[in-house]
């Protein structure tokens, strides 16, 4: 199973570069990374997905993120109840004949048509990453011209959340 991490980071120049550089340097693989402002001014929120399977390595990734001065808090939410979402834009070939078929598929995935060209459509689908995969799979026979995915974003359910004052850090005693 993929590892999903939520990191709260200081909104300062170069922080994204620091995080990306850490993954490269330590030979960890990032599957996707989504970043944007959080509810706290000056604090950005990242959702990072890695392909690391092994628990000890996962803990090392988390500890390495913790260690960075600009990283305020990190939560490994892989095994925590979460809402996961990802949005994809898919440009497919569609003429007068196939347009209706594509629209049926989009309907099934509760997606939307956001642009109509004479021979193309742009489809927007939002949902769990598995749903995105499936939508892409089903649209493939229509000839996909472009795909743009946002990467997964995550939010824990209920009141479990990373702290923007960094107080959950102390728990990183190597056992997690």
């Amino acid at each position: 199973m993929k590892q999903t991490l939520i990191a709260l980071v200081e909104d300062k120049p170069g922080v994204l570069n620091r995080v990306a550089s850490l993954f490269r340097r330590r030979n960890f693989n990032i599957e996707s990374l989504a970043v944007g402002h959080s509810e706290v001014p000056g604090v950005s929120r990242m959702t990072i997905v890695t392909d690391e399977e092994e628990l000890l390595r996962r803990n090392i990734i988390k500890a390495n993120l913790f260690k960075m001065i600009n990283v305020i808090d990190v939560q490994d939410v892989t095994d925590t109840p979460c809402v996961f979402r990802e949005t994809v834009l898919i440009k497919v070939e569609a003429d007068a004949v196939t347009r209706g078929q594509v629209m049926d598929v989009v309907e099934m995935y509760r997606g939307r048509i956001v642009d109509v060209g004479t021979t193309t459509l742009i489809v927007e689908v939002t949902g769990e990453p598995e749903k995105i995969e499936s939508a892409i799979h089903v649209l493939t026979p229509f000839t996909i011209l472009e795909i743009m995915r946002t990467g997964k974003i995550a939010m824990t359910r209920g009141k479990v959340m990373p702290r923007s004052n960094g107080t959950t850090r102390a728990a990183s005693n190597g056992k997690h």
């Binding site: 000890l56 803990n59 090392i60 500890a63 390495n64 913790f66 260690k67 990183s172 005693n173 190597g174 056992k175």
Partner: peptide, 13 residues
């Protein structure tokens, strides 16, 4: 913390 369990798996970190 990032050194614990990095190279050698430990029982008590």
């Amino acid at each position: 913390a990032s050194e614990i369990n990095k190279n050698v798996k430990v029982d008590v970190g």
